[in-house]
């Protein structure tokens, strides 16, 4: 059996599709017994859903530092 902490890590990995097959089975098994982790897993999936739905875009660090540089030049 895996601990709740391990389960949480695997759960986070599944949000980014990085959990291995064995890990997924371990997680599913754990969720059957642990209602707290089941709740966490549900909320985690919800968060992933929201982030996808919002279609977030952002600037890379490189672009940001370039912006900062240009602002400094202007100031």
């Amino acid at each position: 059996m895996i601990s709740c902490e391990e389960a949480a890590t695997i759960c986070n990995k599944t949000q980014y599709k990085e959990a291995s097959f064995l890990e997924k089975i371990q997680l599913k098994l754990h969720l059957l017994f642990c209602s707290t982790c089941a709740m966490y897993s549900k909320k985690n999936a919800q968060l992933t859903n929201l982030c996808q739905k919002a279609n977030l875009q952002n600037l890379t660090e490189k672009e940001k530092s370039k912006m900062k540089q240009e602002i400094r030049n202007k100031a």
Binding site: L56, N58, M67
Partner: peptide, 17 residues
């Protein structure tokens, strides 16, 4: 102005996009 890019660039970028 020094903190503008870090604090608001992403927010504004999403608004613009």
């Amino acid at each position: 102005p020094d903190t503008w890019v870090d604090s608001y660039a992403d927010y504004l970028f999403n608004y613009a996009i």
